[in-house]
Amino acid sequence: MHELSIVMGIVKIAEDETTKVEAKEVTNIELEVGVLSGIELESFNFVWPSAVKDTVLKNAEKTIHIIKGVGKCVDCDTEFNMENVYDTCPKCNSNFKGILQGKELRVKSLEVI
């Protein structure tokens, strides 16, 4: 259940950022989560309410942008969609690839009052 640590990391960022601009609380938080980031969204949403309790995020709506996985084959340069880190190149079947996107786990923006 590392998702709890992840949400607490988000809370820390939100607390820091709101303090910086002297805002009171967050009304909306925009997150980017890649499908290859290792986050289970079900667990993530499950721990969210208890983790944000008594923080600036307690009333915040969250908007999650799911970022799909894209890899590029090292052997034949084909770009392909990835759902798992072990997906092989659909053209030449190689295991060697670079992950271009899908590992993201980022706080994109905060809407504060």
Partner: peptide, 13 residues
């Protein structure tokens, strides 16, 4: 109401 463009990695700490 203001929007802060944070763009921070959650695991950065």
């Amino acid at each position: 109401q203001r929007v802060i463009e944070v763009e921070k990695d959650v695991l950065q700490n």
